[in-house]
Every structure is written in C-alpha cells, then in structure tokens.
Write a protein that binds this DNA or RNA. Structure first.
Ligand SMILES: [Zn+2]
Ligand SMILES: [Zn+2]
Ligand SMILES: [Zn+2]
Ligand SMILES: [Zn+2]
Lengths: 168, 168
DNA sequence: ACAAACCTTGTAGTCACTACAGGGTCAAGC
DNA sequence: GCTTGACCCTGTAGTGACTACAAGGTTTGT
C-alpha cells in the first residue's frame, strides 16, 4: 500500500502521514526500489491509533507517550490513567471558560438589535468603554482586583512578579 | 510612559505589545531621542481594546476589522453584528464539540479503575481496538459511514473528492 | 566607574499541520 | 518510443499568536 492509499483508507492527508513519520509517531515504512513508502496493516493500525487519539484532543507528545506505554508491556497503567485524567481536566476547563465566553458574547450582542451607524452601536460602545476602564466581567486595568471570576485569557495583571517601581 | 510601564498597567507582555505594533493593531507610538517607545492614554485605550477583544476569543484579524469599523464612523454596524454573531457561533460549536469529547474521554476513563499492568489496561485496549476497526463513537476506518454524529476533528473520509482508483 | 534595570532590533522557536517548488516514477494509451 | 497524467519524493516556508533569546544601546543610582 502506497501513501496515497493509506491516506484514502484513513482519511488522513498524505503530507500529514509524512509529518507523523518525521515526528517519530509513525514507524518508518519499508521503501520500494524507487523510494516509495510501502505500508502494511500494522502501520494502518498505528496511524488509526494516532488519529483516534488526536480526535480525543491529545497532543502529539501525549500520543508519543501513550504509544511508549503501549510498547512497554511491563509498565503499569498509572501513567495512562494520569494522562487521560489530565486530558479530561484540560477539556473540562476549556468548556468552562468557553461557556463564560459565550455568556459574555451574548451579553455583548444584546447591546445592538438593528442596523444603524457604527458610531452609535452599543456593541462598539461597550467594547470601547471596557477598554477605557469601565467595569466589565473580564477586564480590570490598573491592577485593581477584579470581582471573583476570570476566564482563560484574562488580560489584567497576571504574572508580573517584577520590580514595578514605575519610571515615567 | 515606556513600554514596560504600559505592560505593567495592562498585564500584557512588552514583547506582545511590540508584536501588536508590528501586526498593525496598535498604532506606532512616538519615540524618545534614544528610540524608546513613549505611550500615552490613547494607546493605553487601544491596547486595552485589543486585550479585551482577545479575551472574548477574537482573532487578531477580527480585531483589526473591528478597529477599522470603529475608526470609520459613517460605516453602519451590520458588519459588527455579523462579526460578533460569527464569534458566538464559533464558540458555541467549540463547546458542543468539547462536550462530546468530554463524554468520550469519561467513557474511556471508565475502562480502568485501579492500577495494574499496562498490557491489561482497559483504556489502552479500547484505544487499540478503536484503531483496529472496532466500532467507536468517532472513528470509522475504510470509509464505512459512521452512525450519525461526528465531532470537530473526525478523522475518517472527510474531504477526499479524488480519483480513488487505488494502485497497490 | 560600574551595575542593574530598562530599552532596541532581529531572529528563531512553539504546535500541528498545510502548501508549495522542483523534481522523480509508473502505467496506460497512441 | 513517447507523452500524458497520476502518483511519489525531499525540502522549505507559511499559518496564528505569541514567546524566548541574542547582542547590543540607554538611563539611573551608588
Ligand atoms: Zn449596532
Ligand atoms: Zn476586558
Ligand atoms: Zn488501567
Ligand atoms: Zn476514532
């Protein structure tokens, strides 16, 4: 089976297959005399394993680890559980943060109902006011502490453990 | 105000501020005689606007557009509404797909309860079976049509409108 | 005079691909 | 035997939104 056929059977682009090989996720296949990659059922399984894990949102690094655990049969499965648990946690946090985001976007959308001049648009006004320091759900300039929650990429005063003496 | 002070006031890294300037999101500030960037309240507002939009999950391209709408006061706000609606749609679809993902991960996690050899781990077994063609929620090799749903990065037979005659 | 803290530019790295460019190979048809 | 076209190869560069240097210049305090 050549790379195009493997691509067709898995639904994975041929360039992506080569990329996985380069990244060491897929074992290097045999080559024909002219240098064409020739795949067999084993590699088909390997690739499907990768694709399935990717569809579960795992990073290539995670998949590499998982494949190593799979290869080493004496290894216990604690690390596997940890990896899946971390993945679940990651996905869960993403969902939480996106839900908050959706709320904020819906609230913002609610500021404008029908078409009119951009200058009077409630959406734009809300956005500009937020930028100018009016209180908003996500946004706290000048290092005032914000009221409780903060989503994923909260943009005020997060990690500045610096001197902060302030030169004008 | 120098770049470090702006960084401190906004919680945005100085290198990111320079990046936004390079990308044309932030207007180029005045320079001191020695070439240092000097910012004023206007640019503080500009940056906060960007950061606030970013925290709403907008791309830099979207923010550039939004800033252009803001600048052109004769423009009507239809495009603004469209942009926000698209953003809401994007976020909503992401949530849906992540929820499905979470279900799948929880189901997978349920296959293993206590530590044992990786060779016997239900998680790994489930993953390998999925790769070998056993039915699974996301995964359909060999172009069989899958049973109804598919999440974001479904990996089987999506966009191969190609010749598909198959050379072994 | 010197160090610390700041600033500058430019380049390269991240992740998981994607898109060429510039070639080589193979089977079928004429 | 030659052309056509589908397929394959390598290598490089681009995406988005940063992040992390390297190598140097400036300002401020002691
Ligand atoms: Zn409006
Ligand atoms: Zn904000
Ligand atoms: Zn287990
Ligand atoms: Zn699958």
């Amino acid at each position: 089976m050549l790379i195009g056929e493997l691509a067709r059977q898995t639904g994975c682009d041929a360039e992506t297959i080569r990329y996985y090989e380069r990244e060491g996720l897929l074992s290097a296949p045999q080559r024909s005399s002219s240098g064409y990659r020739r795949y067999n059922a084993e590699q088909l399984g390997e690739l499907n394993f990768i694709l399935h894990c990717r569809s579960l949102g795992m990073s290539l690094a995670d998949i590499r680890n998982l494949a190593a655990f799979k290869a080493d049969h004496r290894h216990d499965c604690e690390d596997i559980n940890l990896l899946i648990d971390q993945q679940i946690g990651k996905v869960h946090r993403q969902i939480e943060s996106l839900r908050l985001l959706e709320q904020q976007l819906l609230a913002l959308r609610d500021k404008c109902h029908d078409t009119h001049s951009a200058a009077d648009c409630g959406i734009l006004q809300t956005l500009v006011e937020a930028a100018e320091g009016e209180p908003c759900v996500c946004h706290t300039p000048f290092g005032q502490d914000n009221h409780g929650h903060s989503h994923d990429h909260d943009h005020a005063a997060k990690k500045n453990g610096r001197t902060q003496k302030g030169r004008p």
